[in-house]
Amino acid sequence: MGISMMRMHVVVVCSVVGFLGLVVVILGVAAEAATAQAWVSAGEIDIDDGGLNVKCVYRATPALGCGIVAALLALTSQVAVTYASLCSWCCRTWELPKETRRIVGIALSAVSWIIVIIVVALFIAGAAMNTDQKRGLTADEKCPIDPGSALFAAATVFSVVATGLQIGSCVLLLATPPKGSTKPLATQQQDLATGQPESQQSAEVVVAGGDPPPPSAPSLSSETKSQV
């Protein structure tokens, strides 16, 4: 893979991750705004074991669909970054990036996985709170007007952090190798197997500074000289 192709690969992957992260943020904001439509009333009375309980009545809102789609997109973005990083190691050149860069990239990828799992859990929990349901009053005998709003807000903030970590790990793990030889690892192994390094092969093909030396005349053996 050439240097230009590797750079294009990094740009494409980071662009896709950034776009998916932007969509997740938009869906998170839309879901948080839609939670205000869930609460209907707190005047419904249910008979439970002979007692009267006041229930908070909620209806389904667009936050349900927004939360589920946002969770799926956040997980898709993380899987795409991980897959691209694994593919880059399969097709890498024999000149690997610096060890520190690789370790930091792996660490960022691991942290992003943890944050994405939290984001998915928060979006799913917020979506579950925006279905048709009845819930009891809180400890202060009130109904939460915006059920799941705090969950969507937290998930949106964490999704921004996860997107930044994904792009950072992508740049570090898919970074262009140092300038120089981009000879594939398999070709280098073949050269080493023949016992003839590349520098020696080049020296045999071209002699720097002039024409190749003339072939030396074969020496006569002592037996041939006696016959002459």
Rank of each mutant, 00 (worst) to 15 (best):
S169P: 09
V12I: 10
A42Q: 10
P177T: 01
V11L: 15
M129N: 03
T76V: 12
L192M: 12
V81H: 06
Q200M: 06
T182Y: 12
V17T: 12
S222G: 09
L122G: 04
Q188E: 11
M6R: 11
A154K: 06
V160E: 14
L173G: 00
S149C: 01
F123T: 02
K179L: 14
E198F: 02
S15Q: 02
A34S: 13
D46L: 15
M1Q: 12
K55W: 01
A193I: 04
G180R: 04
G164N: 03
L86G: 01
T182I: 11
S219T: 14
S181Q: 08
E95D: 12
R101Y: 04
R135G: 00
H9I: 03
D191L: 08
I167Y: 03
R92A: 11
R135E: 01
D146W: 03
S109R: 00
C143W: 10
D48Y: 07
S77T: 11
C143S: 15
I118A: 08
Q196A: 04
V205N: 12
T76P: 05
S199R: 14
A33E: 07
S149Q: 08
C90Y: 14
V104P: 13
G67K: 04
T35L: 00
T163G: 13
P97L: 06
T93G: 12
W94R: 13
D191T: 05
K183I: 13
I115Y: 00
